[in-house]
Design a protein around this nucleic acid. Structure first.
Lengths: 240, 240
DNA sequence: CGAAACGTTGAGCTAGTTCAATCCTGGTGG
DNA sequence: CCACCAGGATTGAACTAGCTCAACGTTTCG
């Protein structure tokens, strides 16, 4: 299976691609690269001339503060491009690293620009991806702000499961080998690892969802959605 | 002064516009509209066929939760387009309203698409604007997450002053008639109005900044920046 | 002047933190 | 096969940040 298929499949969860656009994407020169768990591959402050998409694994984007604190601002799964924005905004305000061993496909900005200039609908599709990322950021502002730990964590889980499902990462029984530790969830929510642990316990004890041995199981999707106030509209998935 | 000048001036704070792009923008059909303080002009869930930019006044973007809670996700000043993304992502996941009496310029998506198809550099400039908005969202995730009330509020003030200065909203003495009440700041930070009040008091008592009678005065920019951990890089202003 | 909106403060409560200890679980060397 | 180790998960206890309720002060404006 060609490397770009992960990217194409992801784009098709939110947009309709023309045959021409699919062909242009398929012709994109891609260099495959493997990252070790915990490896940074884009540094805060650096300038890029290439972007990457996830082929297999998980990436995270985070900021580091002067005092050493860390705020995670996104997670990226199969097919997603965490640094697509670097095509137009070259200096990075965050670090991107691999959460576990991850395979990415690297494409040069030059080549991306070339296919976008050949198809304005493809350019629009890529722009639209970054706008959906922005909508996700808006939800995360609420997760870390008004929602508070319990509702915010529930919302995050709803979102991650919905996104993972869209690109076919869930097991047939609906569970998911969630590739995140409690530390990762804590860094995303801006809360302590102790508190994320207690928040997850609360979700488990109310029979909504549980993570055990790395596997996320949703027991009561309706109730979890209600608790989170989750409306998948902002993800703009074609299937919902 | 033509209505679009506010938009053009704002775009030029972050991008270089060609004569052609400036001409295209200047030819954009704009309908001026005035909004009363507190008036919603885009509703959560609605579908738009037009976008707006601020001519004079302030807009805010916020989400409303099932329980009636509210999370503000952005403020918009002169020249900014809070719903530019609606060109590609039509259904709104948030409400936009005027904070005080505000004049906006409304442009049809159709006309925006037309000028973008005539100039790919103009299209890129507009796309880039939405990417900078996304970078601001990332900072707000941190403001409401890891930074906490004091550091997060300091960071927000640094950002707002920097943005206001870029479009010439500061008085000659460096102060600014901040068009936000403590309630607005609280909704942005996801904290209570009582707590924002105490946070501002703390900033005032440490001699960093004070808001009195609607006027924001920065006493010690260096210290405020240090407290906030503010690095204006993410705003991508040409002047810094 | 009076009303409405905004700002300020105290007091008691709740959510979330830090520190520290303990417990799994999976992997590795002998 | 087992002992050991490292990273992650879990818990208790004491502490801090932030919330709610309620009262009161101040500014603005008709």
């Amino acid at each position: 299976m060609p490397l770009v298929d992960a990217l194409i499949a992801k784009l098709e969860t939110t947009a309709r691609l023309s045959d021409k656009d699919r062909t242009l994407l398929a012709g994109l020169p891609v260099v495959m690269k493997t990252l070790k768990a915990g490896e940074d591959f884009v540094d805060q402050g650096s300038v890029l001339d290439q972007s990457a998409f996830v082929i297999e694994g998980v990436l995270t984007k985070y900021q580091v503060f002067p005092d050493g604190g860390r705020q995670t601002v996104s997670f990226h799964f199969k097919g997603e491009m965490p640094d697509l924005h670097s095509v137009l905004v070259r200096r990075m305000d965050h670090t991107i690293s691999a959460i576990r061993d991850t395979t990415i496909g690297v494409v040069r900005h030059e080549d991306l620009r070339a296919i976008m200039s050949q198809s304005s609908s493809l350019a629009a599709t890529l722009w639209r991806e970054t706008l959906i990322d922005a909508a996700i950021f808006r939800q995360w502002i609420a997760n870390n702000g008004k929602r508070g730990a319990l509702h915010g964590t529930a919302h995050l889980l709803c979102e991650l499961v919905t996104r993972a499902k869209a690109v076919g990462l869930l097991s047939p029984d609906g569970s998911w080998f969630l590739p995140l530790t409690q530390q990762h969830l804590a860094d995303a929510g801006g809360i302590s690892i102790v508190h994320i642990n207690r928040t997850l316990r609360s979700l488990r004890q109310s029979g909504l969802a549980a993570i055990d041995q790395g596997r996320l199981r949703i027991f009561d999707w309706e109730k979890l959605v209600a608790l989170a106030g989750f409306d998948p509209l902002y993800l703009h998935l074609r299937s919902t």
